[in-house]
């Protein structure tokens, strides 16, 4: 009590911060866990008794299909981001310092611009009589327009387009820390380029890879507006299922259970990331 009187400012700050986080972070998350264990109720959204029905419903073949498909789309997105982003980050780390600032700025600009608008811009390009089809026809590569929009391909392109910077930035930061002397040491010890890449570069950049995967894989399952705009409004992602269950079907326990699955996936990835970092630390590099 004496403490409280002596430092009114400190107390006020701590109460405000704790209050905000308890009310808008901790309580909401506990509520979702609670909701996932309750019974669906058309009037009040959720009601007793407690049940595991929502989790059982996740295993329903219909939804299992959506989850697997969502995982497939997210995995493809992540893979493409990694394949494009890894050499990109490497090349970026080799550019002179003065240009690097500008190049990174150019990479962050999209992050600051409206993602809906950018997704819509892709629609202009991928539409049946859009720029890509017209261009390919003008070049004579195709004879008639190819259906690109409203396909899974379009959705994956959209996800890659939105999420690529999130893969590149953590990769760039590990490449920045990659020490040249280690590469030279590997070379001096007789390792060829491939061996150096596999035994030195890959392990050292692994934390960046995992951080990038973490920042791409999970959002790629949740960004429901991308399939809505580019995929023709089908339930392609877990995010679409969660949104529909909460806002349209009003099946809260199921939507909550699906969201907890996403959270668990996130925790798992974060754990893997931590492990990879620790391993490098212990190797004394």
């Amino acid at each position: 009590m004496r403490n409280l009187m002596q430092q009114p400012f400190r107390t006020a700050v701590l109460v405000l911060v704790w209050g905000w986080l308890l009310f808008l972070v901790l309580t909401p998350n506990l509520l979702v866990v609670g909701a996932s264990l309750m019974t669906r109720d058309p009037a009040t959204f959720i009601s007793l008794p407690l049940t595991l029905d929502a989790y059982r419903q996740l295993l329903n073949p219909l939804y299992l299909d959506v989850f697997l498909n969502s995982l497939y789309m997210a995995a493809m997105t992540t893979l493409i981001c990694l394949l494009v982003g890894y050499p990109f980050a490497w090349a970026l780390s080799k550019v002179g310092k003065r240009h690097q600032v500008l190049l990174i700025f150019l990479l962050v600009v999209p992050f600051w611009t409206n993602s809906l608008v950018r997704t819509y811009a892709l629609k202009l390009i991928l539409a049946t009589n859009g720029l890509l089809n017209n261009g390919l026809m003008a070049l004579g590569w195709i004879d008639e327009p190819v259906q690109l929009l409203y396909t899974e391909f379009a959705v994956i392109i959209g996800l890659v387009y939105l999420l690529l910077p999130f893969m590149i930035l953590p990769l760039y930061s590990v490449f920045e820390d990659l020490r040249e002397d280690l590469l030279r040491a590997s070379h001096d010890l007789g390792a060829g380029r491939l061996a150096t890449f596999v035994h030195v570069i890959v392990p050292l950049t692994l934390p960046g890879v995992l951080a990038g995967v973490m920042l791409v894989l999970l959002p790629a399952m949740g960004l429901f507006f991308v399939p809505d705009i580019l995929g023709g409004s089908r339930n392609l992602l877990v995010g679409n299922v969660i949104k529909n269950q909460f806002l349209d079907a009003r099946n809260w326990p199921f939507g909550a259970a699906a969201s907890i699955m996403l959270t668990l996936a996130m925790a798992l990835l974060m754990f893997a990331h931590k492990l990879s970092k620790r391993r490098i630390g212990e190797d004394g590099v």
Binding site: F23, P28, L218, P219, M221, G222, I242, A256, S259, T263
Partner: peptide, 16 residues
């Protein structure tokens, strides 16, 4: 808050 997928944050806030 920073790491959870936005949609998870969204439904938890709606619930509260």
């Amino acid at each position: 808050v920073m790491m959870s997928p936005e949609i998870v944050l969204a439904i938890s806030l709606l619930a509260v």
